[in-house]
Amino acid sequence: MRVLIAPDKFAGTLTAVEAAAAIAEGWRRHAPDDVLDLAPMADGGPGFVDVLHAALGGELAAATITGPHGAPVPATVLRVGATAYVESAQAAGLHLCDGDPEAATSRGVGELVLAAVDGGATTVVVGLGGSGTTDGGAGVLAALGATSDVDLSAGPRALAGVSRVDLAPARERLAGVTLVAASDVDNPLTGLFGAAKTFGPQKGIAEERIAEVDGWLETFAAAADRRTSLEKGAGAAGGIGYALLALGATREPGIALVAEAVDLAGRARAADLVVTGEGAFDFSSRAGKVPYGVAAVAAEALRPCVALAGQVLVGSREMRALGIESAYSLVELVGEERALGAPAEALAELAARVARTWSR
């Protein structure tokens, strides 16, 4: 039997590469003769560069950039031919945001784009996801040369009262470069479904502060490029999507971009079963998350798809609406303490159990 193993990361415990290896190890315990094809996945968030490097090869170049609170942080640029891939989470990820969320900047993402361009890339693909900033991408624009009457690199609070933003220097700096924003988020920059209202709380912005932060982003958009702020995806990564779109970027679904890079469709057609997974499998998985994207590819190939997850938070009806035949929970099998304390071992154990049900 041929099994395609295509999980996302298990946030906080395992990378996608580690998760795929753990599932394969456990599967082999029960079905050592099955042919396993490992295809670690990402949706544009943490792990985006690592997954693409594993799939595409290419060269990794180290860069030191500005973190969300000003400290230098390490990051990498993946260069494949004339195309470079960078990951916003490496520069402005939630794991780096341990200070005031109203002062967190996305400047490092712009510096990563510059590093890619300075390295000779003519196309730069920016993975959006897992960010801890809500500055409307002002920091990105500043790093690329945009000017203003306020400090664009000082987080959303610094945008209060902004009246002038000149994007021309940033656009000139990227002349001849194709920008791609890899994101599945459809939210606009501001408003009821905007970056602050939808994602601000998970980034540490207090509920009673959301309206004011959203107002700062409204003022910023009015000074920079109001029309672009209304576009789908402008609210991605706290508004980094807005900055990229304002500089002429096109938007591609992150999961679709990775799926194409790893030839997921072809590999699914060659398999008898597709196995995916992520840390928490819930109904938000429909919003561009890896399991939903993998399940859609499996369905097109007429192959069943099952999911292994840290927690399964949907019922069977919702699960099938997401294209998943069955989902299995680590926490249910081994308990939360062991699932977090020994995640690879626990995931391998869960995979062995799933193999007993699904392997021939």
Rank of each mutant, 00 (worst) to 15 (best):
A21V: 00
L94P: 10
A71W: 04
L36G: 11
A21T: 00
L52P: 05
I65M: 05
A42I: 09
S106N: 13
A115G: 07
A54W: 00
A42G: 09
G70W: 09
V109Y: 08
L4Q: 05
Y85I: 10
R2V: 01
V51W: 02
A84I: 12
A16Q: 12
A54N: 10
R29Y: 11
V113Y: 11
I23A: 02
P72I: 13
G99A: 15
E102K: 10
G110L: 04
L60Q: 08
A24P: 03
A11C: 07
T76R: 14
V77C: 12
C97E: 01
D100I: 07
G99N: 03
A104N: 04
D37R: 08
A62E: 15
A39P: 03
V73A: 04
P72H: 07
D50F: 11
H69K: 12
F48R: 13
G44D: 07
A62S: 15
D98A: 14
R107L: 11
D8R: 09
P72G: 02
K9E: 07
G45E: 07
T13K: 01
L114D: 15
G58N: 08
V86P: 04
S88K: 06
A91Q: 08
M41R: 13
T83M: 08
Q90W: 07
M41C: 06
P7T: 00
A89W: 00
G44H: 11
G45R: 05
H69M: 13
T15L: 05
D43L: 13
F10S: 06
H69N: 13
H53Y: 14
V80A: 13
A24M: 04
G26W: 00
G81K: 08
E18K: 03
P72F: 01
H95N: 11
L114I: 04
A63Y: 06
E102R: 15
L112G: 02
A31L: 12
G70L: 08
A82C: 13
A24Y: 06
G108E: 03
G45L: 09
P32Q: 09
L78I: 11
W27C: 03
A16K: 01
D100M: 10
E111P: 06
M41W: 08
T105R: 09
T105M: 01
R107G: 04
A61W: 02
T64A: 12
C97T: 13
G110C: 04
A21Q: 00
A16S: 15
A16N: 10
S106M: 05
G45C: 02
P101G: 00
P68S: 08
H30V: 15
C97Q: 04
P68G: 10
L94A: 12
A115R: 12
R2W: 01
L114P: 02
